Simulated assay, not measured.
Amino acid sequence: MLGTVGVGFISAFLPVVPAEPYLVGLVATTTTNPALLAAAAALGQSVGKLTIFLTARGTLRSPMLRHWLARKRALVVRRGDSASQHPGRLRRMANRLVTVVSADRHRITGPLLLFVSAFTGAPPLIVMTFTAAAGKMRTAVFAVACLLGRTARMMVVALLPALAGLSLHL
């Protein structure tokens, strides 16, 4: 069980180590309760994403980083860079996402979007993690939405071997 939490935690940081195939293999080859394995993987991933969230929030609110960013923005504006005056489509979409996820008037929309991201992977959960950290989403709200979404995802993944008739139980 602890190994499954560990794989989930590592997969939160390294997308090349996905927890889902590990979980499917584990469910197909052991007699351990699939729901417990799914919960363990979800817990590991959620703790990993929460670590990223808290780290990003600390970094994004760092006075030293804010000072550095302000200097860089001032330099770009002084140069008359047209990109700073007309943000690109990607920047506008990112700004809108931060607004939707963290604005006070979106108390339901932000957590719901985070849950959907944690469950489906779209938008990518890592993007949502940084977006929520940059905004006003409370840590507890982030943690609960992420854990619920990841748990639902892992429960579905854990059921796949049984649905496919795979049960090797070595």
Rank of each mutant, 00 (worst) to 15 (best):
M1C: 03
L2G: 14
L2E: 09
G3R: 12
T4C: 10
F9T: 01
F9E: 00
A12D: 08
A12T: 04
L14E: 00
V16D: 00
V17M: 09
P18H: 09
A19S: 15
P21R: 11
P21W: 13
L23H: 14
V24L: 12
G25E: 01
T29V: 14
T30H: 06
P34N: 14
L36C: 03
L36S: 09
A38Q: 01
A38V: 06
A40W: 04
A40H: 00
A40G: 08
A41F: 04
L43Q: 08
L43D: 05
G44K: 02
S46Q: 10
S46P: 08
T51N: 04
T51F: 12
T51V: 08
I52E: 14
F53R: 11
F53D: 07
L54H: 05
A56Q: 01
R57L: 01
T59P: 00
T59F: 15
S62C: 14
S62Y: 04
L65K: 02
R66S: 13
R66L: 12
H67M: 07
H67K: 12
L69W: 15
L69G: 02
R71P: 04
R73I: 11
R73C: 03
A74V: 04
A74R: 05
A74G: 01
V76D: 10
V76K: 05
G80D: 11
A83P: 01
S84E: 10
R89V: 03
R89C: 09
R91D: 12
N95S: 08
R96G: 12
V101D: 00
S102M: 03
D104Y: 13
R105I: 03
H106Q: 02
R107I: 06
I108L: 11
T109S: 08
T109P: 00
L112A: 13
L113T: 04
L113P: 04
L114Y: 07
L114M: 10
V116K: 06
V116P: 00
S117L: 09
S117I: 07
T120S: 15
T120H: 07
G121Q: 06
P123H: 02
L125W: 09
L125F: 12
V127S: 11
V127R: 07
F130R: 01
A132P: 07
A133S: 12
K136G: 10
M137W: 06
R138C: 07
T139N: 08
V141F: 11
V141W: 07
F142Y: 15
A143G: 15
A143T: 07
V144K: 02
V144H: 01
V144C: 03
C146F: 03
C146V: 15
L147C: 07
G149N: 08
G149Q: 13
A152M: 14
R153S: 04
M154S: 00
V156R: 03
V156H: 06
V156T: 12
V156M: 06
V157R: 03
L159M: 13
L159Y: 13
P161S: 10
L163E: 10
A164T: 04
G165Y: 11
S167D: 13
S167W: 11
L170Q: 12
